[in-house]
Simulated assay, not measured.
Amino acid sequence: MTPAKRAVVLLSGGLDSATCLAIAREMGFETYALSIAYGQRHAAELTASLRVAQALGAREHRLARVNLGEFGGSALTDAAIAVPENEGNTGIPVTYVPARNTVMLSIALAWAEVLGANDIFVGVNAVDYSGYPDCRPEFIQAFETMANLATKVGVEGARLRIHAPLIKLSKGEIIRRGIELGVDYGLTVTCYQADDAGRACGCCEACRLRVAGFTAAAVPDPTPYVQRSV
């Protein structure tokens, strides 16, 4: 029997990354889920990532640690910066974490080389997103080019691929796709300031996008909220 192709899937524990994991599985990959503790204040998503990895049949689930909170500069890593609530974006918001996706993809790349996996999946989205520069197609393409220049496997002739299957989908389209693939969104945590039980605030940008997505998909929202103001 031909061994299954391996893929590393970045898994935050949120809605998008759970859908991404399900897509990688449907494409026939043996999936290796990688979650990153980067100093985020909303650590409930890491607990959710374990649930999602188990539910979607990841071959292995690893948690890597890199403390971007040491530098701060983001409402998601610095307790001195408030998470915006019920506000529209004007420019790149304070929830942007400097270099986060670059760091995460680099760690995923290291594990992929060790595993002999030529494919990495990431759930970035350039439609219903908060204006983060590292969620754009240009960034994904640039990182893939770099990965093939900077690795032993790339230099020796194999092709490393960065898959961003959600990048052109709306949040509603992502949810509908996940439902088709059997994703239980009740296992996921998306909120920027979820409590320890995983209950969402109902006020932040992530909650607003999530609620709008379930509304657009005409699917009941399974999210437990502390309050619901969106």
Rank of each mutant, 00 (worst) to 15 (best):
M1R: 13
M1W: 08
R6A: 15
A7E: 05
G13L: 11
D16S: 11
A18Q: 01
C20S: 12
R25V: 13
E26R: 15
F29Y: 15
T31C: 14
Y32K: 03
A33Q: 03
S35V: 03
A37Q: 09
E45R: 12
T47Y: 04
T47S: 12
A48V: 00
L50S: 14
L56I: 07
L56R: 02
A58K: 00
R62G: 04
V66M: 13
G72D: 02
A75S: 14
A75G: 15
A80S: 15
A82H: 05
A82S: 14
P84T: 04
P84W: 08
G88K: 12
N89H: 09
T95C: 07
V97N: 00
N101K: 04
T102A: 15
V103T: 10
V103H: 00
M104D: 13
M104N: 12
S106M: 00
G116Q: 13
N118M: 15
D119V: 15
G123H: 10
D128F: 11
D128S: 11
G131A: 00
G131M: 01
G131N: 00
R136T: 09
E138K: 12
I140N: 05
Q141T: 14
F143I: 01
E144G: 13
M146Q: 02
N148Y: 07
L149Y: 10
T151P: 11
K152G: 09
E156L: 15
E156M: 14
I162P: 01
P165N: 11
I167C: 06
I167Y: 04
K168P: 00
L169R: 14
S170C: 03
K171E: 02
I175C: 11
G182C: 08
G182T: 10
D184T: 02
Y185M: 03
V189F: 02
Y192K: 06
A194G: 11
G198I: 04
A200K: 01
A200T: 12
C201V: 01
C203G: 08
E205F: 10
C207Q: 03
G213I: 05
G213M: 08
V219F: 07
P220D: 04
P222C: 06
P222N: 06
R228P: 03
S229W: 07
